[in-house]
């Protein structure tokens, strides 16, 4: 990356300032220690609250324990993994996770692209659209979940009133195992679409508009310009959006699942995250929860790797 260039100049600029004030050895020692002092809080916090817990989760996945400090944790080896993987809850959660991710690719990763390209071409006049698109990012998922619970309420919800006026019966979407998951997918799309549009706009902002004018002069149409220029240049952003969407889809849908369906009806909306939560904090099966966590970790690593391989081959155009 070209970012390293200014760095060297900066360090070179900093050296004389220290050297001028004499006592080179003491100065040097202080300078060597300084970056570590600046870094200490972040490094310590990440070590204690991110990396160490990750290792500890791996350990917990090998024991049988119920979160009770008085109880000792028994080492059971890989038992938890077999037990969790064999449960119907895990199979439902895994399948649903694939559905959540599969649906999020066209809805959350691809649909924002034409929206962003359009807003980009509109320029400053699109400010109003952008502000509205960003609104759902600001409000919490709890708020969104409760609002849609009210709108979709089968007895006195708002949608039911509108359906009744049109002479239609409004189905109880959240009680039907076939539709409940799509309600949650729809709501989470509603929530993150605008945010992803904004990230694509950031990617588009770095495209040189003169290139487009040049292609225009050569008689290229909108579709050709998009396929030959915008799409390839946007691929690094696409990779970023795809990976973060997959990771965050896991997290984001936890809230609507917890508020609206609690994983039901008949496990049709639960996902791996919600399953881990249930193992760990509903039934206090720490080993099962940790084993589920490690399997989720492996799954996320594989997903990220696949996405890098698929998308990175197309990312050679990066400036």
């Amino acid at each position: 990356m070209s970012l390293h260039q200014p760095q060297k100049q900066v360090v070179a600029g900093a050296v004389p300032a220290g050297a001028v004030s004499g006592q080179p050895s003491a100065r040097r020692q202080r300078r060597d220690l300084a970056p570590w002092l600046y870094l200490a809080p972040t490094v310590l916090l990440l070590a204690v609250f991110t990396y160490w817990p990750l290792l500890q989760t791996a350990y917990l996945s090998l024991v049988d324990w119920n979160l009770n400090p008085g109880q000792s944790a028994d080492f059971v080896g890989l038992n938890n993994y077999g037990r969790v993987a064999g449960s119907t809850l895990f199979q439902a959660a895994f399948l649903n996770t694939l559905i959540y991710i599969g649906a999020s690719i066209p809805l959350k990763v691809l649909l924002p692209i034409p929206v962003a390209v359009f807003l980009w071409s509109v320029g400053q006049k699109g400010h109003f659209y952008r502000a509205i698109l960003f609104l759902p990012t600001l409000i919490s998922f709890v708020v969104v979940g409760i609002a849609f619970l009210w709108i979709l309420n089968p007895i006195f919800g708002y949608a039911k009133v509108i359906f009744a006026e049109l002479g239609l019966r409004f189905p109880n979407l959240l009680a039907d195992p076939d539709t409940a998951i799509w309600v949650i997918i729809g709501i989470s799309t509603w929530k993150v679409l605008g945010f992803n549009v904004l990230i694509y706009l950031a990617g588009l902002a770095s495209i040189n508009k003169e290139l487009i004018e040049a292609m225009r002069m050569d008689g290229a149409g909108d579709i050709t310009i998009f396929r030959r220029l915008i799409w390839p240049l946007l691929t690094p952003t696409l990779t970023f959006v795809a990976i973060s969407t997959v990771i965050f889809t896991m997290q984001q849908v936890f809230t609507p699942i917890d508020l609206m369906t609690e994983g039901g009806p008949s496990n049709s909306t639960t996902n791996l995250f919600y399953m881990i939560y249930q193992y760990s904090f509903v039934t206090f099966d720490v080993g099962g929860g940790a084993a589920g966590t490690m399997m989720l970790f492996g799954f996320l690593m594989i997903m990220a790797f696949v996405q890098f391989r698929v998308l990175d081959r197309r990312a050679h155009y990066q400036q």
Binding site: T50, P53, L54, Q56, M250, Y277, A290, L300
Partner: peptide
């Protein structure tokens, strides 16, 4: 170190919550 800091971005909370809770 910088890579480790960035890497932490890719580790969602669900992977670390149990030990932190304890």
């Amino acid at each position: 170190l910088f890579a480790l800091v960035l890497g932490a971005m890719m580790i969602p909370q669900v992977l670390t919550m149990l030990p932190i809770y304890i």
